[in-house]
């Protein structure tokens, strides 16, 4: 009980320090209030806006893109990663493709995506999926490649047909790596959806920020920024909860 309280306090401490630093930058005159609004003003504005339908619409647009892109990345990453791990033929095809595509900054493809898919959801979802895909794919691949041979043998001796080993042994055994990849993919999704909305969009949190910046509304500029980081925090802890549940039998990771 007190251990969880301590843990929560430890988690809050850096955030509190960050806000304190932010406030002191202003208080001690290092940053003019016109450029860097005080945290109090930003949180006040956030509180005022939070339950207005306009703001909720922006959040919904961003969240939809984030979830859709992330979900596509998870499905593709896990499927391709598993396939490459169990089939040398598929691996021979996937490996060079991943080597070429993984290091490309996917944002560079965004103008092309806009032209092909338009300004609406599709282009942003695609960009999010493209960026989140690789960490998930790679960690799935490594996780599935390193499954202990004797787990597979034990299952086969117990009568599991070869074709079912993938779902009965490899997938659950690779789960710790897969979820680690998902966690990285989720953070990337948050970043990329915001970025895409900043570049070209008619709604979403990233769009809000750009709009505010163009009109030098510094307080309004910080509101979407704080919102996306809080969303990231919430999503990350949800995923952490899922991970703790799914990996309850695995040694601490």
């Amino acid at each position: 009980m007190s251990a969880t309280v301590n843990k929560a306090l430890l988690g809050i401490t850096p955030i509190a320090l960050f806000i304190a630093l932010w406030q002191s930058l202003i208080s001690f005159g290092y940053a003019p209030v016109t450029l860097l609004p005080p945290p109090g003003a930003v949180f006040l504005r956030l509180g005022q806006q939070l339950f207005t339908s306009d703001f909720l619409h922006e959040i919904a647009a961003t969240l939809f893109r984030l979830f859709a892109g992330f979900a596509i990345a998870v499905v593709l990453g896990v499927v391709i990663g598993l396939a490459a791990a169990i089939s040398p033929a598929i691996n021979a095809v996937v490996k060079p493709v991943v080597r070429v595509l993984a290091p490309i900054p996917k944002v560079a493809l965004y103008p092309a995506l806009l032209l092909i898919l338009g300004f609406d959801h599709a282009s942003k979802i695609t960009l999010v999926a493209a960026d989140a895909l690789f960490p998930i794919l790679l960690s799935t691949y490594y996780g599935a490649s390193m499954v202990e041979q004797k787990l597979i043998w034990s299952a086969m001796a117990a009568g599991t047909p070869r074709a079912q080993i993938l779902f009965k042994v490899v997938l659950p055994a690779a789960m710790p790596s897969i979820l680690t990849g998902c966690r990285i993919g989720l953070v990337i999704s948050c970043i990329v959806v915001f970025l895409a909305e900043m570049i070209t969009s008619t709604d979403g949190l990233g769009h809000m920020l750009v709009q505010a910046a163009r009109t030098f509304q510094t307080v309004d500029m910080f509101v979407p920024l704080i919102t996306i980081s809080m969303l990231g925090l919430i999503l990350n802890s949800l995923l952490h909860g899922l991970r703790t549940y799914l990996l309850r039998g695995f040694p601490e990771v």
């Binding site: 202990e148 004797k150 043998w153 034990s154 299952a155 086969m156 001796a157 117990a158 659950p172």
Partner: peptide, 27 residues
């Protein structure tokens, strides 16, 4: 491999995602 020959390894090789009962029930 076949269920007529059951292995027991030094490393136990239990399924970490299953509890004790689940492991024994598997076969």
């Amino acid at each position: 491999p076949g269920p007529d020959r059951g292995p027991v390894f030094q490393e136990f090789a239990l399924f970490p995602w299953k509890n004790v009962l689940g492991n024994v029930m598997y076969g």
